[in-house]
Simulated scan of single mutants.
Amino acid sequence: MVQTQDFIPSSYSQTSDSGQFTWSAPSNIALVKYWGKKANQIPANPSVSFTLSHCKTITTLAFEKKQNDGNFSFDLLFEGKPKEDFKPKIQKFLERVEPYLPFLKDYHFTIDTQNTFPHSSGIASSASGMAALAVNFMSLERLLNPEMTEEYFCQKASFLARLGSGSACRSVKGKVVVWGAHANTETSSDLFGVEFPKDIHPNFNNYQDTILLVDKGEKQVSSTVGHDLMHDHPFAEKRFAQAHQNLDKISEVLHNGNLEEFVKIVESEALTLHAMMMTSMPYFILMKPNTLEIINKIWKFRSETKIPVCFTLDAGANVHVLYPEQTKEQVLAFIESELAMHCQNNQYIVDQMGFGAELIAH
């Protein structure tokens, strides 16, 4: 079993004075949700997610050798312009990962990052952003240690990404990713995400996710605060047990292709996530009236057409509409005529299942 100390390097065989890498890393959407965490970004329950294809962060990491003065040195650009308000988050990330990347203070970094989706769209960019940064740092470590295996590269990138944003560990590799120790998922770990170990049924090939941008504003309660409220939550233990059971169920479904069962588990998980928010102390609601309008219309459409379209939600008001590729034409027509009116400025993003982080340039 892989332990935290396995990611602490002993020494490096090579040196590098300067260079740069560019990676993209996608967003992901959890089917079985993680809500609640322990120390060091360890999840209180396992989760499983679809990796997305179009919603991603593209990050260039340029590095130049400097005198190690005991400090981190970096410039942060967002879409080519300095972005000071992002810097504290990156500083915190570097502090957390330094034991595993001991070369960080030997370099000055220029981190230039951009998203393929609108910045204020209400889509969490922390998962894709931290995953993109993690794979860039791993590319530099691979320069210093060329013997590194591909498996180690991906595991450690996921491990590092998790220390920046929990769900970021699900954005490194794979179409479907499991994160969190789970008795019936081989190789699963609290430390990093792993590719779903079974064959995935053809029903899920290029599975579609259209993201309805209901509310693009800042959430009134951050996910970090929400996770913390699970510590004294009256229903926490039952919820954690339910997540383990639902991961068992959805593993079967992803393998056998039962879309009716998929719809039930995914929607139940989304509503349970928000039920946890509504029953914490202090309690809060992140859904908006338009979120509920959309959910009701999806239920009506599914009942009338028998098309296995369903919704899921992140910790926010936006709605992810999930459906098989062969129903795309009918579902998009339905979204355009019935659901877009409930989005801010009629905005939605058409996406589908993707494959994880990709090296663009080096």
Rank of each mutant, 00 (worst) to 15 (best):
N145F: 13
Q245Y: 04
V321E: 05
C55Y: 04
K83V: 03
K328A: 09
F86Y: 09
Y283M: 12
S165L: 04
L144A: 08
P46V: 04
I29N: 00
D69A: 02
M341Y: 11
S120R: 12
M276D: 06
A39K: 08
Q352L: 04
L322N: 05
L273R: 08
Y283P: 06
D215A: 00
N258G: 02
R239A: 07
Q208C: 11
D112N: 15
F72L: 10
A270H: 13
M281P: 00
L254W: 10
V263N: 08
C55R: 07
L332A: 03
P99G: 04
T187F: 03
S13N: 00
E186M: 14
R239C: 11
A134K: 08
F235Y: 13
A127D: 08
L101C: 12
G36C: 05
E64C: 13
V177M: 01
F301L: 09
S121C: 03
P43W: 02
V331D: 01
K198W: 08
Y12Q: 04
Y348N: 06
H201A: 15
S126A: 15
S13F: 00
L271V: 11
N136Q: 06
A315C: 10
K198F: 09
V2H: 05
V225Q: 08
V266P: 07
P234I: 12
L247N: 11
N246M: 15
L160C: 06
K156C: 06
E304F: 02
C154I: 12
Y152A: 02
V135I: 06
E147Q: 11
L31S: 00
F240C: 01
T305W: 01
V309L: 13
H119N: 14
R239N: 10
K306F: 04
A157F: 15
L191P: 09
P282V: 01
W299I: 10
N256D: 09
N184E: 15
E186Y: 13
Q114P: 01
K297S: 13
T22V: 14
N136V: 08
P88L: 07
A270Q: 10
N246A: 10
E147F: 05
P308C: 07
N136R: 08
L133H: 14
I307H: 01
F204Y: 09
I295P: 15
G316I: 06
H119F: 13
M276W: 01
Q20M: 12
V331P: 01
L143P: 00
C343V: 08
T210I: 00
L271F: 14
A275T: 10
K173M: 10
A241M: 08
E141V: 02
I295V: 12
K297D: 13
A275K: 15
P46R: 11
N345V: 03
P82K: 13
I123H: 10
A361Q: 11
C169V: 06
F109C: 12
F93A: 14
T305M: 03
E252C: 15
F93Y: 15
K288Q: 13
D106K: 13
E151T: 15
V194L: 05
F109D: 11
N45K: 04
H201Y: 11
P202N: 09
I111N: 08
V177D: 00
E269Q: 14
K156N: 02
H231A: 10
A127L: 03
